[in-house]
């Protein structure tokens, strides 16, 4: 069986603790991750899910490894596009290391399947998410256009 995998690396001028917080805490993710909230108690073996601003579940799975603020490994499956969900679980590893005054964040996403649609989808999403995260931590502002999924209601619209 083939494998499909990518590795993205970004350097962020912030501490590992801050990068960790910004990756997981809703008050941060809502600003740069298309408005999503990652919902979990962040313990090994616990479920996690990605909730869009309109309440739909995007992806989800299980926390395989967690070592704050260094390493997080998630079992990861798409939950809302049937043909991608059918591919089953992928593994996403996030590694956070100090690098001089900055922090090196590595995201490795892989699945035991060649030409995976899930990997194609997330490999297109991660650059935007990581660039948004970097921008938010370095400038205090996420890039515009990243606060909601196009076609998904923004949080204020949901609250109305």
């Amino acid at each position: 069986m083939g494998k499909d995998k990518f590795i993205y690396v970004t350097y962020i001028r912030a501490t590992p603790e801050k990068v960790w917080e910004a990756l997981l805490m809703p008050e941060f993710t809502k600003q740069y991750w298309f408005g999503v909230t990652l919902d979990s108690d962040w313990k090994k073996g616990s479920p996690w899910k990605m909730v869009f601003s309109d309440g739909r579940i995007g992806d989800g799975g299980e926390v395989l490894e967690i070592e704050k603020p260094r390493r997080l490994v998630l079992k990861w499956r798409n939950e809302f596009i049937p043909e991608i969900k059918a591919e089953g679980y992928s593994t996403c590893t996030m590694e956070i290391e100090p690098f001089g005054d900055a922090t090196r964040l590595t995201v490795l996403h892989e699945i035991d399947k060649s030409e995976s649609k899930l990997i194609t989808a997330v490999s297109g999403g991660w650059p935007k998410v990581l660039a948004g995260l970097k921008s938010l931590l370095e400038t205090g502002e996420a890039m515009p256009g990243l606060t909601s999924v196009p076609g998904c209601k923004s949080q204020e619209a949901v609250n109305q």
Binding site: Y8, V9, T10, P127, A131
Partner: peptide
């Protein structure tokens, strides 16, 4: 691996 982030 190709890391597209700097180009992004």
């Amino acid at each position: 691996f190709l890391n597209p982030l700097p180009i992004f």
